[in-house]
Structures are given as structure tokens and as C-alpha cells.
Design a protein around this nucleic acid. Structure first.
Lengths: 217, 217
DNA sequence: AAACATTTTTAGTCTTGGCTAAACATTAAG
DNA sequence: CTTAATGTTTAGCCAAGACTAAAAATGTTT
């Protein structure tokens, strides 16, 4: 497995969550900032290795084997993110690029020892679930904050967008994983939300609210 | 800096310690298990980037810039080895291949935070010195056990050869970094040594003794 | 000092992963 | 149901890094 093949598998895995048909070469190229023609080539190589199912013009899906490898890459990525935040004091907006490199380190022993060292965490610093060594994911029931009704109380459990600007915005508003949030009011005009976050009043736009995962308290 | 360029710099750095003239393409090719012609190509590329001084047919030496980059790679390699042994319970014969991968992770912040997390170690698990963030190395005065006179007492501070078979042999004889060693006798015939290692009698061949670094107690 | 052996470089080739431009499918619209 | 628009693949090309075989430089010997 080359570096590049691993990246393709990871991207296909992530795209599989939003779309439930075959993933188009175009979609992959967009995410990878490359060209559809390059994707076609690589996808054919992955199909030869039986990591993806590929029908011309119909898109790509992961095979069992490909799914497992993708899960192991995601596992490594998220474990390293936990390591960076918990042990090395990185903030949650700084970890992505480094984890993007660390996820390619090949050593099953390292991955499993790291998992143990971290106390077998089930979620990364953004609230995303961490597959265990057999690829199993503990699914948590979570909703977008934007779907929560007025006067309901919830706890912040994850972010949908984990780009640095969004995460830094949340830091500024003192919204973090574990924060308790009450929806005080919803504005009809722009769908913005008035919240009480850990006792403080905060107003957020609908765009913010639809990128925050919460669970009923 | 590509992965491959980094490996060349590292190899040239290591070879510079034993030979103090220019390093030949042949020597590099041997260590890298590649061919001299491939080395010539790469070395010319490194010279274009001013990371090495290169005169045709005369061999290669590191420039200031190249030396610093090499030191940073060695620094990362050795810090990760400490991490693997101290935090993840790897044994000293298992760390090399994984550290070989980890040394290429690009993030100054990661390296320095890791250094801090480990308590700014000055040596790796094999007793090799770890360059600090400015590339400085604390030099320790050490001799080969084979050069020590009879009835002298020393402490084991490093290994010259850190291949798994040698390290595993030392484990079996319960010789480790920090072990106190007294040279009880030296055999004229085969230059083998009778030792007292932490109170136990052990006999080792000259080959073993000339791969163990010790310092006077 | 010339001839031979060794080392090093050059020239040309291969593979991987990417690109552009052109050809080919599919879908949507008239 | 045919054409236009869009999406996808093919064909041909490029750069990096490695290789083989051949040419050139260095060194070693007599």
C-alpha cells in the first residue's frame, strides 16, 4: 500500500458517508484537489487490487478489504489526534495536518500500543468515533444543534466541520466538547440561535449551529 | 524536502563519522542498498539545493545547511525511539524500523513538544546522543569495552551496533545501558573477556566487546 | 609511464502518480 | 428522440527516483 493509495481509500471512505451510491471520480478529484483523469487511473489500480468495486462511468465503492484498510487509516489518524491533544498539548485546530502524516505510519504494534497508552479512547478531539483494532465503531446518537427545539438542553459532542477557522471560532465563544447548551430562542428571520452555553448567553448563526453535533442531556 | 532526499542526507551524515574525506557514491549505495548511478543522480540534486558539496569523482560532504537538516532528522529518529521505549513499552531491538518512518514527519512543533513530553532526553535507547533543537549534541566520553584493561570497572553507556540480533543477545546476557561491568580477565588466545556484570559472571567474545560503549565508573 | 582494474558518471529506460487535451458516455432539454 | 451539456475515460506526456549498460576518470601495478 503506497501513501497515495491510502489517501484515495480514506477519501472514498469519507465520501461514502454522505453519498450512498458509487462515488464519482469527480467527487474524489474535488476532495483531493486533483483531476478526474488522475482519479480514474488510480481507481483502476485499486480495483485490480480488489480494494474497490469499480464500474466505468458508475463510480466506486469500497470492498470489504478496502473498507477495513480505510478504517485502519482513520483509526490511526484519530488516535494520533488524541495523542497530540492529550499528551502534547496541541489545540484541536492544529492537529489535522500532522495527523494526516502520522496516519501513514505502518506498524500494527505501534497503533495498538498507542491505543492502549491513550486508554482506548472512543472519540477523537472533534468528537469523531475511533474504530477499534477490528474496525468496529461505537456509534453515538447525535444531532445537529440546528435541529434542536427551543428550550431543549443538550451537550456538545462533536463538530461536523473541523476546519481551523471554525474551531477557533468555537474556542472564542468558549464552546467545547462537553459544553452544556440550552436553546433559548430561534430567530425566524435568519435562523440564528440564542443559546446558554455553560451558563453564558451566546448567539450563533444557523451555519454554526448546523456544524455542531449535540446529544440530548 | 522529499522522503528520499532526507534519507540520503541521513546516510551521508552517518558515513561522515567514520570517514573524514568526501563520501563516495559507492559507500552511499551500499548503505542504501541501491546502485552508485542512482546515488550520483540524487547527489547532484542535493548539490543543486546546496545541501551537499559535490565534486565529481571526489565524493560528497554536507554543507552547513545539509548538516543541520541531517541533525534534525537524527533528532526526530532518536526522540521517537525514546518515546517508543519509554512510553509504549517497545524493547530496544524493535524501535528502529518504526522510527525510520516517524523521522520523516514534518512538524517542528511536534518535534519540540515531543522532546518536552519526554523530558528533554539527551540519549536514545541505544545510548546515541540526541541533537537539541539547534542541532547541538552533548558529547559523552565513551570507550569500547574491548579497550578496557583488566580489573577496571565501567558502566555500559551505549552500543555501536544496534541490530536486533546483537541487542537480543545483550538482553539474554542481561547487559543493559547502566549495567556496571568489571573486566575480570582477558583471554590472549581469542581476546574474549571475562566480566562481572551487575554481580554476575559473564564471558563475551571480542566481537561483542568491541560493539559495547562504556565509560569509566 | 603505460596498461589494467576499479570506481564513477552518463545515457537511456522503467514505474508511479500526476497532468492536458481529445474522445466517449450519460443525462437533461427541447 | 435527437441534440446539447456534463461528466468520465483514454491517449499521450512529464517529473521523480531508481535501474542497466556503456563510457570516462582515477588508481595501481609493473
Amino acid at each position: 500500500m503506497t501513501y497515495s493509495e491510502e489517501n484515495y481509500l480514506k477519501v472514498i471512505y469519507h465520501l461514502s458517508h454522505t453519498a450512498n451510491k458509487g462515488i464519482s471520480t469527480n467527487a474524489i478529484a474535488n476532495v483531493m484537489e486533483s483531476k478526474p483523469s488522475s482519479v480514474t487511473d488510480m481507481v483502476q489500480k485499486l480495483a485490480d487490487k480488489e480494494l474497490v468495486e469499480y464500474v466505468k462511468y458508475q463510480g466506486v465503492t469500497l470492498t470489504q478489504k478496502g473498507m477495513f484498510m480505510a478504517l485502519m487509516i482513520v483509526r490511526k489518524h484519530r488516535l494520533w489526534e488524541v495523542f497530540l491533544v492529550e499528551k502534547l498539548d496541541f489545540s484541536w485546530d492544529e492537529v489535522h495536518d500532522v495527523a494526516e502524516q502520522l496516519e501513514h505510519i505502518k506498524s500494527e504494534k505501534l497503533t495498538n500500543k498507542l491505543d492502549e497508552f491513550l486508554g482506548f479512547p472512543t472519540e477523537d478531539p472533534h468528537g469523531d468515533p475511533i474504530p477499534d483494532k477490528d474496525g468496529r465503531i461505537a456509534s453515538i446518537d447525535k444531532k445537529l444543534l440546528s435541529e434542536i427545539g427551543v428550550s431543549k438542553k443538550v451537550i456538545c459532542v462533536g463538530v461536523k466541520d473541523s476546519s481551523p477557522p471554525f474551531l477557533q471560532y468555537l474556542d472564542k465563544q468558549q464552546i467545547a466538547l462537553g459544553s452544556s447548551i440550552e436553546v433559548v430562542a430561534k430567530e425566524d428571520f435568519d435562523h440564528s440561535l440564542s443559546l446558554r452555553v455553560d451558563g453564558k448567553n451566546v448567539t450563533v448563526s444557523n451555519k454554526i449551529a448546523s456544524n455542531l453535533f449535540v446529544k440530548p442531556v
